[in-house]
Amino acid sequence: MTPRNSPITRRGWVLFAVMSLVWGITYLFIKEAVATFSPAAVASGRTLLAGIILLPFAIRSGALRQAWRYWPWILAFGAVEMAGPFLLLSHAETTMPSGLTGLLVATVPLFAVIIALFRGDRTALTPIRLGGLLLGFIGVAVVVASPGLIELTAGSSIAIGEIMLTALLYAIAPFIIAHKLADVPSIGTITLALLTVGILYLPLGIATQHQVPTTRSIVSLVLLAIVCTALAFLAFFALIREVGPVRAPLFTYVNPVVAVALGAVILSEPITPGLILGFPLVLAGCWFAATGGKLRRTEPDLTTGPVTTVETAEALLADTATDTDTTTTDKH
Score class of each variant (00 low, 15 high):
residue 167 A to H: 08
residue 72 P to G: 01
residue 11 R to Y: 07
residue 173 A to M: 13
residue 113 V to F: 06
residue 211 Q to V: 10
residue 115 I to P: 14
residue 324 T to R: 14
residue 253 Y to F: 12
residue 111 F to S: 03
residue 315 A to H: 06
residue 54 L to H: 03
residue 103 L to H: 06
residue 104 L to D: 01
residue 79 A to L: 10
residue 119 R to L: 10
residue 35 A to W: 08
residue 102 G to R: 04
residue 317 L to P: 00
residue 79 A to N: 05
residue 98 S to T: 10
residue 313 A to H: 14
residue 329 T to C: 11
residue 256 P to W: 04
residue 59 I to L: 15
residue 11 R to W: 08
residue 140 V to G: 00
residue 252 T to E: 02
residue 220 S to L: 09
residue 268 S to A: 13
residue 300 P to D: 09
residue 200 L to C: 15
residue 189 T to N: 13
residue 217 S to G: 07
residue 197 V to R: 00
residue 292 G to Q: 02
residue 239 L to Q: 15
residue 321 A to G: 15
residue 272 T to Q: 05
residue 19 M to F: 03
residue 109 P to G: 04
residue 58 A to I: 09
residue 73 W to H: 15
residue 233 F to S: 11
residue 11 R to K: 15
residue 17 A to K: 14
residue 154 A to W: 11
residue 13 W to D: 06
residue 245 P to G: 15
residue 242 E to G: 09
residue 98 S to M: 08
residue 269 E to S: 13
residue 165 L to C: 05
residue 302 L to T: 05
residue 219 V to G: 02
residue 308 T to I: 03
residue 216 R to T: 10
residue 82 M to H: 12
residue 110 L to K: 13
residue 32 E to C: 04
residue 244 G to L: 11
residue 301 D to R: 15
residue 273 P to C: 07
residue 131 G to F: 04
residue 193 A to V: 09
residue 279 F to K: 03
residue 32 E to Q: 12
residue 192 L to K: 04
residue 22 V to L: 05
residue 29 F to S: 07
residue 141 A to R: 14
residue 125 L to M: 11
residue 37 F to G: 03
residue 34 V to H: 06
residue 114 I to E: 05
residue 171 A to W: 10
residue 310 V to Y: 15
residue 257 V to I: 12
residue 276 I to G: 03
residue 257 V to T: 12
residue 201 Y to K: 05
residue 247 R to Q: 10
residue 148 G to K: 06
residue 244 G to P: 14
residue 235 A to I: 12
residue 220 S to A: 15
residue 288 F to V: 05
residue 265 V to P: 15
residue 19 M to N: 06
residue 178 A to Q: 04
residue 37 F to V: 03
residue 230 A to F: 11
residue 29 F to R: 01
residue 4 R to M: 05
residue 174 P to S: 12
residue 58 A to D: 08
residue 332 H to N: 14
residue 89 L to V: 14
residue 327 T to D: 09
residue 143 V to Y: 01
residue 40 A to T: 11
residue 15 L to V: 04
residue 332 H to Q: 13
residue 232 A to M: 09
residue 116 A to G: 15
residue 41 A to F: 09
residue 121 D to H: 07
residue 104 L to Y: 05
residue 80 V to D: 04
residue 160 I to Y: 07
residue 207 A to C: 12
residue 51 G to M: 07
residue 145 A to Y: 02
residue 246 V to E: 07
residue 273 P to N: 00
residue 140 V to R: 08
residue 327 T to Y: 09
residue 282 V to A: 10
residue 184 V to G: 13
residue 51 G to F: 00
residue 133 L to W: 00
residue 151 E to Q: 11
residue 249 P to L: 13
residue 129 R to Y: 06
residue 118 F to I: 06
residue 172 I to A: 09
residue 92 A to Q: 03
residue 39 P to S: 09
residue 111 F to C: 01
residue 57 F to M: 13
residue 49 L to C: 12
residue 91 H to R: 14
residue 305 G to E: 03
residue 152 L to S: 11
residue 170 Y to W: 13
residue 329 T to N: 10
residue 28 L to Y: 12
residue 86 F to N: 10
residue 33 A to H: 00
residue 265 V to D: 05
residue 77 F to A: 10
residue 129 R to W: 02
residue 259 A to P: 12
residue 214 T to C: 08
residue 101 T to H: 05
residue 171 A to N: 02
residue 163 I to G: 01
residue 307 V to Q: 13
residue 226 I to Y: 05
residue 91 H to S: 04
residue 122 R to T: 07
